[in-house]
């Protein structure tokens, strides 16, 4: 099994499109992270004795909760593209009949899928860790004159942990949808359409339903309830995201097992 996971990791890291997509995502993260820096320093400079600052115009809040919120929220924006990386990882199997090679060398398809899932999760975890490190680094630049220790507080680490859970589940959802669709582009379109649908707040009128969508679950898991309109608790979000990933991966495993390897 370790051999299969290693081979799947090699497939991921020896494919230029995966590496390019990852580089673009990290670049985007830097752009997203640079933006609030100036504003953050300014608002921290104008902190009141009660510890509140005004970062969002007209909204006063505790500096701690703002910084902790920003730390995780700024990872989510580039992290929205993680399912696309999952789709590219899965989609390579459907180019040039590559799945035929994969199944002929690892004919036990359950084992093949498990190996792929573990390798994809590990890669997502690595990208997630880099994203979280970037967020920490840039937030440090913003808060170093005030309270840099906050970035290592238990709360901050818990927030990063929640983000890593998001990174792995979101990537696996894009990966699994593509294994079922058998086309990278179909996987990417399906994932993007779903994100757009959630963004458009089609289901926002009914929070109970909204909370069951993967992107809403991600927001519930990662964002600050004081500055965002959320539909459920972080725990609920974690459960929903994990559930989606589990269902999608199971569906993909069944599809790969039943179908001819083409």
């Amino acid at each position: 099994m370790i051999g299969v996971v290693r081979s799947e990791l090699t497939k991921i890291t020896s494919l230029p499109s995966v590496l390019i997509a990852t580089a673009v995502l990290l670049l985007l993260a830097v752009v997203v992270l640079l933006q609030p820096l100036g504003m953050l320093s300014d608002s921290l400079a104008g902190m009141r004795p009660d510890g509140t600052i005004e970062f969002f115009t007209g909204h006063r809040q505790q500096a701690e909760s703002l910084v902790l919120g920003l730390l995780v929220a700024s990872s989510l924006q580039p992290g929205l593209f993680l399912p696309i990386i999952g789709a590219i990882i899965a989609g390579q199997e459907f180019r040039s009949g590559h799945l035929g090679v994969s199944v002929s060398v690892v004919p036990r398809r359950g084992k093949l899928v498990v190996g792929k899932v573990i390798a994809t999760a590990l890669y997502a975890l690595a990208v997630g860790v880099v994203l979280a490190a970037l967020s920490t680094l840039f937030m440090y630049l913003g808060v170093r004159d005030w309270n840099p220790g906050i970035l290592w507080s238990a709360e901050a680490l818990a927030g990063q942990g929640r983000f890593l859970l998001y990174a792995v589940t979101a990537t696996l959802i894009g990966f699994a949808v593509t294994l079922v669709a058998r086309r990278t582009l179909v996987g990417i379109i399906a994932v993007t359409a779903f994100i757009a649908l959630t963004m458009a707040q089609v289901f926002a009128a009914v929070p109970a339903i909204d909370a069951l969508l993967p992107l809403s679950a991600a927001r519930n898991l990662l964002l600050e309830p004081t500055t965002n309109v959320l539909s459920a608790s972080p725990l609920h979000g974690a459960a929903v995201l994990t559930g989606w990933a589990a269902v999608a991966v199971t569906g993909a495993a069944v599809a790969v097992r039943l179908r001819d390897a083409r």
Binding site: L15, R95, G97, L99, G100, V101, R262
Partner: peptide, 17 residues
């Protein structure tokens, strides 16, 4: 009809196998 991904290097294809 079951071959390597075109973007991959030949040696990398053999390495994962």
């Amino acid at each position: 009809g079951a071959g390597p991904v075109p973007e991959r290097r030949g040696a990398d294809h053999l390495r994962w196998i």
